[in-house]
Design a binder for these strands. Structure first.
Length: 438
DNA sequence: CGGCTTTGACCAGCGC
DNA sequence: GCGCTGGTCAAAGCCG
């Protein structure tokens, strides 16, 4: 604490010096990085030194020049999402201490100073291009329930869409930089397009971790340059390339996305079925399309059951019982995707099961890839899917990632149920082997 | 009364 | 410089 105090004094002094030098964001960064170099973990003022530079005047006034101690989390684009995952999974990330600034003050006071702080936060998160994750899903409600608390702060008519676009801000923490935009699809009003931007800087409710992981993992895919070079063409790249091939209307990935509530050590190694990446806009955006195509008649694989054969759906067979996993709006939303999509698809030709299956437990809908492949001859599988499956399942990193995911997943609910955990992991390994062989 | 939504105003980025 | 567009602000009103 003494050392930290000294550090803060030093920073405060430097800050004052900075005020006399208007030119200075660059210098400030230099200072910040200097301290980073000299210390494994740089201690800085509450929000972050870099952030303070931009709105320091206002912020200093707003905070009554109060200095708070926190770990300086300099999130680079890659670590950003990882940190978000960490923060979402536990109240770690500098421990509860990191949240001190918001916890120290009554929410109302925080809200009052939030505007000032927000600017610095925005600056902190100001990447050259903010990554966005857009999710298209059928939803009847005004906005989909992802477990987070949101406050609407604006609404605009967007060009080319008769439906207004609503802007929401995360209110779980007053300092949270996460925004989301919600807009109905112009072509199909039943489709809700939710676009997330930024990563949560606070522990998330259990019910919101799934979505946070999904979006941050998706964002990581865009942000992590290593993805393009990893393992030759790259694990994800190969997966994506097969996705791309099947982004055609005949591909039906409607049950593909089901990340459930797990964290993963390398979140950018998620596999995003039916995703598309666009960097045409100022904000690079990855779109996760969770809507099923309206008709099945165009399928070029008429005999092929409309399973998502590239669906790496880890959650189903390995899911802990409901008693272990607390019910979450998002997980139920995941169920929503499946059950509703199922209903929809039944109405359009019966993709999956008999019509009575609507009331069946979701396990039936969450067939893992191996079960899926076992259910129909491999000859129906397009080569690219087989290739992608092999590429993925033979990748040692995939195994470790899966193991980590499962460990976290199982570990989240049942504390220390190692027996079950091992069993689950064994099953996972076995399934993977079977998949690889097939 | 606090929190939320609504909505017009404002601002910044971009293309022409 | 101007207009368009996306995004945000903030005052007013609503609601529990």
């Amino acid at each position: 604490m003494e050392q930290a105090r000294e550090e803060n004094k030093m920073l405060k002094f430097l800050d004052i010096l900075e005020q006399d030098k208007p030119e200075d964001a660059t210098n400030a960064k230099g200072v910040s990085s200097q301290s980073e170099e000299s210390e494994p973990l740089s201690l800085s003022l509450g929000i972050s030194f870099k952030g303070k530079i931009k709105g320091k005047r206002k912020q200093d006034e707003g905070m009554d020049r109060g200095l708070t101690l926190g770990l300086d989390i300099n999130l680079d684009p890659v670590d950003h999402a990882e940190a978000a995952n960490i923060s979402s999974s536990a109240s770690s990330l500098g421990g509860g201490k990191e949240e001190e600034p918001s916890e120290m003050w009554p929410p109302s006071k925080v809200l009052k100073t939030m505007k000032n702080v927000d600017k610095s936060e925005a600056f902190q998160n100001d990447q050259p291009k903010k990554t966005r994750v857009s999710i298209r899903a059928r939803c009847d409600t005004q906005t989909m329930n992802d477990g987070c608390q949101w406050r609407k702060y604006g609404q605009k008519m967007a060009k080319g869409n008769p439906c207004p676009r609503a802007y929401y801000r995360c209110t779980v923490s007053p300092l949270c930089p996460v925004r989301k935009q919600v807009q109905r699809c112009a072509e199909d009003m039943s489709i809700l397009i939710t676009t997330y931007e930024g990563t949560h800087n606070h522990p998330l409710p259990m019910s919101a971790t799934a979505m946070a992981c999904t979006t941050s993992a998706a964002a990581s895919m865009l942000q992590c340059p290593s993805l393009s070079s990893e393992h030759g063409h790259g694990l994800v790249n190969s997966a994506i390339s097969s996705i791309t091939k099947f982004s055609a209307p005949n591909y039906n990935p409607h049950n593909a996305l089901n990340f459930s509530t797990y964290q993963i050590s390398r979140p950018h190694q998620f596999y995003f079925p039916n995703s598309s990446i666009s960097s045409l806009n100022y904000h690079p955006t990855i779109t996760l399309d969770l809507t099923a195509p309206p008709t099945a008649s165009n399928s070029s694989f008429p005999h092929m059951p409309k399973y998502s054969s590239t669906n790496l759906n880890f959650s189903s067979d390995f899911s802990p019982p409901q008693s272990i996993m607390p019910p979450s709006p998002w997980s139920s939303y995941s169920g929503y995707f499946n059950s509703r999509a199922l209903t929809h698809n039944i109405n359009h030709g019966g993709y999956f099961l008999n019509p009575g299956s609507q009331n069946q437990p979701l396990e039936h809908l969450h067939q893992p890839i191996c079960m899926t492949n076992n259910n129909f001859p491999q000859r129906f599988l397009p080569d690219s899917i087989i290739a992608a499956t092999k590429a993925i399942t033979s990748n040692p990193k995939f195994h470790s990632v899966l193991a980590t995911a499962l460990t976290t997943y199982v570990g989240n609910g049942a504390s220390g149920d190692t027996l079950r955990e091992n069993h689950v992991l064994e099953n996972a390994e076995l399934s993977l082997k079977l998949c690889s062989e097939k």
